[in-house]
Design a protein around this nucleic acid. Structure first.
Lengths: 335, 335
DNA sequence: TCGCCTTTTGGCAGCGCTGCCAATCCGGTT
DNA sequence: AACCGGATTGGCAGCGCTGCCAAAAGGCGA
């Protein structure tokens, strides 16, 4: 622990070997607990490590090791502003920490070109695996990922073809289930309120599934309000007010997610509209606050943590694989 | 782009040099745009790179380079469940992406021992800098960080001594300002509702500042309810119900953060308590939903993104430095 | 055409570690 | 005392790249 380094230079494995009076290979074997070594050697190395405050250099280790890939995984997510993605990371890190594998993250801001650049940047660290969000990528991204020679896991969305492994649920099915729920409850004049679909493709898939199920019931969406920018309660509140101003006769609104729905709920409270008597609200994600509302929000709970965990478990595997973790419709009291 | 690699082996800089008919050093210079090279050499290298689908190996690059530190930063945060930390990461990555520096993250779960382990693990990647949360760490963590020879930036909290650079705001001052606001508004029977303080030390500092300011006004906290586990709207709702059951005479409640306050607000709505007439609510963080509530939440807005950005800016700097980014009291309509 | 200076270039050591291989050690046999 | 097999050990090449240096190539005025 004492700082007896020659200033400016960190201890190396060679220093440890000298200090412990053993060979480099022995130190390496002891530190990785790989191969056989005597108890005595183990002790001397441990002492020397403590004395020098040695921290192994994994850059060198990974470079020298078999396959030259690092015990790191690269993760590209579109945003950190939407709780969904931190939740995903949460599941991931909880599973990966157990193995001592850290995540290197990149945030694409929903921009496919940025995603491609991030994938290239992350691959340059020779990660053991690459985790992407969604199934839609630039051709260049796919080419890079395939050529990179790493396991690729795509998270969240199962509606389409994956590069390698896919872990998530069907957004179309979520939309369809949501629509069927509203129809079964007797709602007929249904509107949609969402954030930018061109950007959040999965929200678009949900809406597509929603409309299909609606038309199967002989209904059609009465109104659609798309707000620019990311989803948020503020956007949901303003959006619902705008939607109702244009279509006061709606009896239910399907939101692109719970954040938007919370804003919608606030708009109803502020305007004194009875929920769900005057207007029913239906969300998506099953965030924490949904259950704490005076009337629990009707929504669909997605297995976000579990997706992260399963994605981590997938890294070990081989070959293409799709894991559909499903979702759970929460009846709630707003629809 | 075509996949003409000898199977299983990724192209190396030497391959590119051969393909382009130039020396390795020239390729290196071209790729890093460092040193001088002819236009012709630049073109030939660019072509070879494209032809081979070459992705540089930064493990090797960092190992060979000066100082042998990687263009990576290590980040340790206590949690991903609380929006605050993703926001911090958001600020960080937005600033760092511009420089092409990715973050390697570790999540400590508010456990100092885990934090220490993560710091050791991250240092083994020889990051250019280390970003920690808060000022309280194990002695071992501090020793590692100091010996690691990297710039250390501690984020969020400025109430205490930092290792190197510190970027954040004073949690004590936040608590004091919150108390003064409630006192000025005429509230006298004030309670506190928080999540686990032993774990979230910064919430504890806010409460300490709050109580000091209260006593300076000749008042004292009437009741304190601490809920185990992390903060959440559900915990806030259950907590407020418990608190009011024990102390029905409170006229204001200070919450450990906005999530808890939102739960409290829902509890009031459900119980038909007028806010702030019957009970005033005061939060912390200034999250997005606070402004969208029918009555905007009275809270304190913290510069989370800015902390991340400034922390990134700090990495370049030298020597100890403390940046207090302050906070903003949002009057709102709930207190 | 020649010499001189600047730009451009390639060779090669070495970053810190791991994997391989051959050397050494130890305990029990013959 | 010589021998044997397994456990333990150290030396060293090499992972892919960068930094340094000396060599080669141009440019230009005399």
């Amino acid at each position: 622990m004492d700082d007896i380094q020659p200033p400016g230079r960190l201890a190396t494995l060679t220093d440890v070997a000298r200090e412990a009076g053993v060979g480099e290979s022995t130190v390496s074997r002891v530190l990785r607990n790989h191969g056989s070594y005597s108890k005595r050697a183990g002790e001397r190395v441990a002492e020397a490590v403590a004395r020098l405050g040695y921290v192994p250099n994994r850059l060198a280790g990974s470079l020298a090791g078999q396959g030259a890939s690092a015990r790191l995984v690269g993760v590209v997510i579109p945003s950190l502003a939407n709780v969904v993605f931190p939740d995903l990371l949460r599941g991931l890190t909880s599973a990966l920490d157990a193995e001592g594998i850290p995540c290197v993250i990149g945030v694409s801001d929903y921009d496919p070109d940025r995603e491609e650049a991030l994938v290239a940047a992350l691959l340059s660290w020779r990660p053991a695996a690459l985790l992407l969000t969604g199934l839609e990528h630039n051709p260049g991204t796919v080419a890079l990922a395939k050529a990179g020679g790493v396991r690729v896991v795509e998270m969240i969305d199962t509606d389409g073809e994956g590069i390698d492994a896919v872990v998530g649920f069907s957004n179309q099915a979520v939309g369809a289930a949501s629509a069927r729920h509203l129809v079964a409850r007797g709602y007929r004049r249904i509107g949609y309120l969402g954030h930018d679909l061109a950007v959040d493709l999965r929200a678009g898939k949900r809406l597509a599934g929603f409309e299909v199920a609606l038309s199967e019931a002989g209904l059609a969406l009465q109104a659609k309000e798309i707000r620019p920018g990311p989803s948020s309660p503020a956007s949901g509140r303003a959006g619902l007010e705008a939607l109702l101003a244009r279509h006061p006769d709606l009896d239910a609104v399907y939101f692109s997610n719970d954040d938007m729905a919370l804003g919608g709920y606030f708009a109803c409270l502020a305007a004194g509209l009875a929920v769900p008597g005057r207007l029913a609200l239906f969300g998506f994600n099953g965030l924490d606050f949904a259950a704490a509302m005076p009337q629990p929000l009707s929504t669909v709970r997605t297995p976000r943590l579990e997706i992260g965990r399963q994605a981590a478990a997938c890294l070990a595997g081989e070959g293409p694989k799709t894991i559909d973790l499903g979702f759970k419709l929460i009846e709630g009291a707003t629809a």
